[in-house]
Amino acid sequence: MFNIEWTGEYIAFIVFSAVIISGAVFMINFTKVVHMVVSLAAVFIGIAGMFVLLNAEFLAFVQVLVYAGAVSILMIFGIMMTKHKESETESKRGLHSLLVGIGAVALFGILFYAIRQTEFPQEQPLQAVEDNTLEIGKLLFTGYVVPFEIISVLLTVAFIGSIVLAKKEANE
């Protein structure tokens, strides 16, 4: 397990995963909601870094823009508009939390076991191309043009829907 060569990629991976996991754990453990959102943003940025390591530069940018930017801001707006108490009250449902913890750990155990057991084919990994954005753009507008259009329609519908939902009903 530890007989791996310490390449630059690997060191970067360790750093990013540390950021991701600690961010996630902090997010769960913080009591102030704003702190949670900040640590979540750290997780998103860590994942963006992982995308770079995986030769997906375009996705990394999208991740930073959409998640670390838009989604986090949206969450903060949501927090502000629902003007809840500043801090998260401690959960009183001890048994419930315990059972969820057991379930989550058991699921992780199963996943861990499955990943460790699986023999992954040692094929040539995808080589970094000259222009990742160009390749994705070509694919999007040739082979995946229909899903692309559908996803744009979905986005439009979602945004209109959320406006309708969140709008104060004037005549009430």
Binding site: I20, I21, A24, V25, M27, I28, V33, M36, V37, L40, V43, M75, G78, I79, T82, H84, E88, T89, S91, H96, S97, V100, G101, G103, A104, V105, L107, F108, L111, F112, I115
Partner: peptide, 23 residues
């Protein structure tokens, strides 16, 4: 997997609906 399980835990334990969405 670690990330998924932490998210799962948060989604099922946290009371605040915003945090559930975050998870």
């Amino acid at each position: 997997a670690i990330l998924f399980c932490i998210g799962l835990y948060g989604a099922l334990v946290k009371k605040n609906a915003v945090i559930v969405l975050l998870s």
